[in-house]
């Protein structure tokens, strides 16, 4: 009798796991894959245009990388530590702060402050659960990697991958407004870190990076535009971002043309662009951007 029960359970288990993972385990190709948009479809669908804009946001680790290259020391005082994830009630707040803390997590990880990132991870987990995307956040693995400090590459990979998956899932499920908020949060926090650092480290690289955000900000506003009249919170956020756009209005970005130079090195291709973008921004313009960014970011994190 026990043996018979065991066989029944085993068959049940087999069927359960076989069905659950059928799409992953199938060796046949699935076309089109949800993450792969054939060219012809991408051109004609407006949703795809929105996808394009959403993907066109730089990762927060790029800003952290730039700061490291400039040998700017880590500054814990810049982190959004005042965010209390358990006090947030609306999806708007949760998604926006999910983005802000995601940028902080990237900053912490890049500077290998992995011990401190455990607290941020706990808040991120609460927020992700709050908007029903916690399943994409491998909290236990991230916490283990953070505590062990042994495998930074895996930590960065899984952190980034979790955010990529959440973003994609939200857009696929028609919750684009939450994805837009998360992306806005990531961007504003990256912009805040860069503009605060530039006050103490007025490096040309960082200055140009802040100026170039004119391009990204325009895209971000396009992403937010469909939701600006959804409620008061969205309306206020859009107004603030429009205000920042105004500060960028007279900054000029020019381009010089040239063909890329390609060489082969150690079995890989090494390509260097000769075409170049240049930013023309005065100190006054930069100062206004710093102040406006600071005001927006502090308003967002104080609104618990």
């Amino acid at each position: 009798m026990p043996a018979r029960l065991f066989i029944i359970l085993l068959v049940g288990l087999f069927l359960f796991t076989a069905c659950r993972n059928s799409s992953k385990k199938n060796s046949n190709f699935v076309f089109p894959d949800a993450d792969s948009v054939p060219v012809s479809e991408a051109e004609k669908l407006s949703d795809e245009a929105i996808d394009d804009i959403a993907r066109n946001m730089s990762s927060p680790v790029e800003i952290a990388n730039l700061l490291q290259r400039m040998k700017v020391p880590f500054s814990a005082g810049l982190l959004a530590t005042s965010i209390d994830a358990s006090r947030l009630s609306t999806s708007f707040d949760k998604s926006l702060k999910l983005g802000i803390l995601g940028a902080d997590l990237g900053y912490l990880n890049m500077y290998e402050k992995t011990g401190s990132s455990v607290d941020v991870l706990s808040s991120i987990k609460k927020l992700a659960d709050g908007v029903n995307v916690g399943q994409f956040f491998d909290f236990e693995t991230l916490k283990r990697l953070s505590r062990s400090r042994s495998d930074l590459d895996s930590l960065l990979l899984i952190s980034q991958d979790s955010y990529n998956k959440i973003d994609k899932y939200l857009r696929d499920k028609g919750r684009g407004q939450l994805s837009a908020l998360m992306i806005t949060g990531v961007w504003i926090e990256g912009q805040y870190l860069a503009t605060q650092m530039i006050k103490q480290h007025p490096d040309t690289l960082l200055r140009n990076r802040v100026g170039e955000q004119k391009i990204i900000l325009n895209d971000l506003l396009m992403l937010l535009a469909p939701y600006c009249n959804v409620n008061q919170q969205f309306s206020s956020l859009c107004q603030d971002m429009q205000d920042l756009k105004l500060k960028y209005r007279d900054i000029k970005i020019t381009f010089t043309v040239g063909d890329p130079v390609t060489v082969e090195k150690d079995g890989a291709l090494v390509v260097k662009q000769t075409e170049e973008s240049r930013v023309e921004m005065t100190d006054e313009q930069l100062a206004l951007i710093i102040v406006t960014t600071n005001n927006i970011r502090n308003k967002l994190i104080s609104n618990n």
């Binding site: 170039e212 090195k265 890989a268 390509v271 260097k272 662009q273 000769t274 075409e275 170049e276 973008s277």
Partner: peptide, 10 residues
Amino acid sequence: INFTCKKTGT
């Protein structure tokens, strides 16, 4: 491919 970017953009 290792690509050194000199022009910010999409």
